[in-house]
Design a protein around this nucleic acid. Structure first.
Lengths: 200, 200
DNA sequence: CAAGATACCAAACAATTGTTCGGTAGTCAA
DNA sequence: TTGACTACCGAACAATTGTTTGGTATCTTG
C-alpha cells in the first residue's frame, strides 16, 4: 500500500470519520464542501488517487473503504513497542485485536458478566466478561455457561460421569455441583470461547 | 422503541448487514431489488416506518441507523440467556462488548501477547492479549508493560521504593526484578487496562 | 527543461437518488 | 363496518450523484 500525500490523508480521514458518525460514504460534493473545493472534479481526482493507492475500493460507481482501513477495527496488536514513540508510528503491527474478529463466526456469540470467583484458578475473575458461543450441547471437560433450575447463569467446567453431570469450579474453596439428569434439568447456554477484562 | 413487523425487521437487518459489509446505506432501489419490490415507494414506506419506530434516523434526506442499532461489530452483552433460543431473538441485551468501546479513548492503545505465566495469579495467562494504554510514566502499584535493557516486553506490577523500582510478578515462584534507576533504564511502554483471552 | 505528479477550477452530462401522488388489497380491533 | 395499519404497485419529479472534458498552476525529479 503506497503512501498518501497530506491532502489525500486529510480526505481519507474525513471519509473515515464521516462513516463512523453517519454510516455513510460522503458524497463528492460533501467532501468538496468540507475542504472548500468548489469543483467535484477535484474530489474525483483525489478519490481516484485513494483508489489507486489501495485505500478505497470501487465496485461499480460505489466507493468503500478497503478492508484494512475499515473503522472500528479494534486495537493494534504489536510485537514490540518502542517506548516513547506514539503507537501510530509503530510499524511492527501484527494485526488488530477485536472481539469480532477473534470470536465472530455467526450471530451466535454473546457475552456475560461473571459473578463471583468460582473460576478464579482458570483466570476468570469477578466482573470479567466471558464470550460464549451459543450451543445446547457440550463435551466433558469444556467450559460452559449453564443454568440449573431457575438460578443465575454459572460458568463452570462440565464433567460427564454416566448419568451424573458435574459442574466443576476452578477454585479449591468451592465444591462441584452434581446434577442428576433425571431430576434436575441442566440447560446449557453455550461454550466459553473467550474472555474480556477491564483492568482496574 | 416500538416493535417491528416481520417485514420491517427483514429490511432493517438487510440495511445493517449492508452497512457492515460495504459501509454504505443501501439506496431505496437496492433494498427494493433485494426484496423484489418493484416500486421504490414501497421501500420509502417501510423506511418511514423504521424512522417512526426509532430504528432509523433521518437528517435532511440522509438516513442512518439510530445509535442503538449501530453496526453490530461486537458481541452482545446479555444478562440472562434463554437456553435454546437463538440469541438474535434475545431482548435483554445490555449493550455490545467491543474492544474499542471498552478501551478506546484515542489512538493510544495497543495489544501485546503475553509470554509466560509470571502474572498468573492476576489472572493473566500465557497467550493472553493484554490491552495497554501507552504512557511513559506510571504510579506505584499499577500494572505496566515495560522493557528492561534490550529485553522483551514484560507485564508486571510496578513498585517504587525510593531510587529502586521493583517489577513485581504475580506468581509465587517468580521473584521481583529490582531496577536501580541510576544504572539500568526502565522504559515503560504503557499501563495495562484490559485483557482479552481466547479460550482453548 | 521536460515529464510526471499534485492540486485545483468551471461546466456540462446521464444516471441515480429520495420523494410524492394516487391506487389496490389484506388484516385486525373498535 | 369503519378506520388504522400493513404491504404492495406504477408513474413522475426535482435534486443530487458520480463522471468527463479541458483547462491553470505548482512542485519535484531525472
Amino acid at each position: 500500500m503506497r503512501s498518501l500525500t497530506e491532502r489525500q490523508r486529510e480526505i481519507l480521514n474525513y471519509i473515515i470519520s464521516s462513516i463512523k458518525s453517519t454510516d455513510r460514504f460522503p458524497s463528492y460534493r460533501e467532501i468538496g464542501r468540507r475542504f472548500r473545493l468548489s469543483s467535484s472534479a477535484t474530489v474525483s481526482q483525489h478519490l481516484d488517487a485513494l483508489v489507486r493507492k489501495g485505500f478505497l475500493t470501487k465496485i461499480g460507481n460505489k466507493l468503500m473503504l478497503s478492508r484494512e482501513n475499515r473503522p472500528i477495527r479494534g486495537v493494534p496488536i504489536v510485537g514490540r513497542v518502542a517506548a516513547g514513540l506514539p503507537i501510530t508510528a509503530i510499524e511492527n503491527r501484527e494485526g488488530y485485536l477485536n472481539v469480532d474478529s477473534l470470536f465472530y463466526d455467526d450471530a451466535t456469540h454473546f457475552a456475560v458478566k461473571v459473578n463471583g470467583d468460582s473460576m478464579k484458578d482458570a483466570g476468570i475473575f469477578d466482573g470479567d466478561y466471558v464470550i460464549v458461543r451459543q450451543q445446547e450441547e457440550a463435551r466433558s471437560g469444556e467450559m460452559i455457561v449453564a443454568y440449573i433450575g431457575d438460578e443465575e447463569a454459572t460458568v463452570k467446567i462440565m464433567r460427564k460421569r454416566g448419568r451424573i453431570v458435574e459442574l466443576e469450579p476452578r477454585n479449591t474453596s468451592y465444591k462441584s455441583i452434581r446434577i442428576n439428569s433425571k431430576r434436575d434439568r441442566l440447560r446449557i447456554a453455550g461454550k466459553v470461547v473467550g474472555l474480556v477484562r477491564r483492568v482496574r
